[in-house]
């Protein structure tokens, strides 16, 4: 149930994002989803990729500050109110979220979540029959 997310530290200067995507592309690593969190001076690029371990290594070898963080990916029906329902479950159970981002493939909407309590989050979502995506499935999308 745990998904490995790749995080990359980026200074706010032009061309850095291009470089990351180029390095990954050259290694045949596919980017499935990503989000950029930014401040006035730096940003953090968070990525779900087809091969997180290898992506981490190549970026590290290219002098990027990278790490792998465990996150959860939840599949929501692609319809109004679905996300609200899922988030309500989490807040009812006092699970806070550091950040989240979403991507959709066909009819399904996927939400990547970084909760403060990872195990607890998975347990609660499973108890409420929310569909969590397996890492092996996700990396092949």
């Amino acid at each position: 149930m745990l998904i490995k997310q790749l995080s990359v530290f980026l200074e706010n200067k032009s061309g850095r994002l291009t470089e990351v995507s180029k390095i990954l592309g050259d290694c045949g690593i596919n980017m499935l989803a990503f989000s950029v969190a930014d401040t006035s001076e730096f940003g953090i690029l968070r990525l779900i990729v087809s091969d997180p371990e290898r992506a981490c290594k190549v970026l590290h070898d290219n002098d990027f500050s990278v790490n792998l963080t465990e996150v959860v990916c939840m599949n929501c029906p692609n319809e109004p109110g679905a996300l609200a329902k899922a988030l309500q479950i989490l807040s009812d159970n006092q699970i806070t979220i550091a950040y989240l981002y979403a991507f959709s493939t066909g009819d399904s909407a996927n939400v990547v979540l970084k909760p403060d309590q990872l195990e607890e989050c998975i347990k609660v979502l499973q108890e409420h029959k929310m569909e969590l995506i397996e890492a092996s499935t996700l990396y092949k999308i």
């Binding site: 995080s7 730096f42 550091a98």
Partner: peptide, 15 residues
């Protein structure tokens, strides 16, 4: 320099 050992995926921690 932000070295890997203290790089975090959370903005809050870096700030």
């Amino acid at each position: 320099e932000v070295q890997e050992q203290f790089f975090s995926d959370e903005i809050r921690k870096l700030q």
